[in-house]
């Protein structure tokens, strides 16, 4: 379906746009992270309610409404005229699970945000990315009133592959959020199959 990929370094008319997903359960700080590191832009789509799992919706009073508007605000980080990173948060509600497939299609990788007070809300995201083979890191959002847990303990509690980086961060802080994205990209570089002589492809974070 794609047009020519003959020049992989200049995809898309010289403009390369890369998609990173920001995921995790409800209230873990997805929107905060996207807002702290990128220019947030409004986007919406209209979805068929039947596709969106109308069985779980309370449709009383809106019997004639067959589509629902889904807000998909995203963040854009323009790195150069010809290079931009797009951050998409995955919808939190279960009824929008079907959108995860669309969002993860062609994604570079994902950040799963975790809250140590309720790690379980981030399990579904981890399961999803593991099954889909989307590389991800876990970013533990350090809430003020949460007890500190070492990253390795969080990784163990989440039953992660030991190679998956776990980083503790503060979603409100731009530098901290930036470090999360850098950790993901370093991980992608380090885990690339058949990496050539890449001077700076070491795992970091």
């Amino acid at each position: 379906m794609a047009s020519k990929h003959s020049d992989p370094e200049a995809l898309g008319h010289g403009l390369t746009a890369l998609k990173i997903l920001v995921s995790g359960g409800f209230g873990v700080g997805k929107t905060t992270l996207v807002g702290s590191v990128s220019e947030v832009r409004p986007l919406r789509t209209e979805e068929d309610l039947t596709r969106a799992g109308s069985g779980t919706d309370d449709l009383s009073g809106v019997e004639n409404k067959r589509t629902t508007t889904v807000a998909l605000d995203y963040g854009r980080i323009t790195l150069r005229d010809d290079l931009a990173v797009y951050l998409f948060g995955t919808p939190g509600q279960d009824r929008f699970w079907f959108m995860w497939d669309e969002l993860s299609n062609g994604a570079l990788g994902a950040v799963v945000i975790a809250d140590t007070r309720r790690l379980e809300v981030s399990f579904p995201a981890i399961d999803f990315f593991e099954k889909r083979g989307v590389p991800f890191i876990v970013a533990v959002n350090r809430f003020d009133n949460a007890e500190y847990h070492a990253p390795e303990d969080v990784g163990a509690a989440l039953d992660l592959d030991p190679q998956v980086p776990v980083i503790v961060f503060d979603a409100r802080q731009r530098t901290s959020g930036k470090q999360v994205l850098i950790t993901l990209v370093r991980y992608l570089l380090a885990s690339q199959p058949r990496v050539r002589d890449d001077a700076d492809a070491g795992a970091g974070g």
Partner: peptide
């Protein structure tokens, strides 16, 4: 490609 990833890394 690793080159694009490195460009992203340096940009970030």
């Amino acid at each position: 490609s690793p080159k694009i990833l490195r460009d992203v890394l340096h940009g970030l």
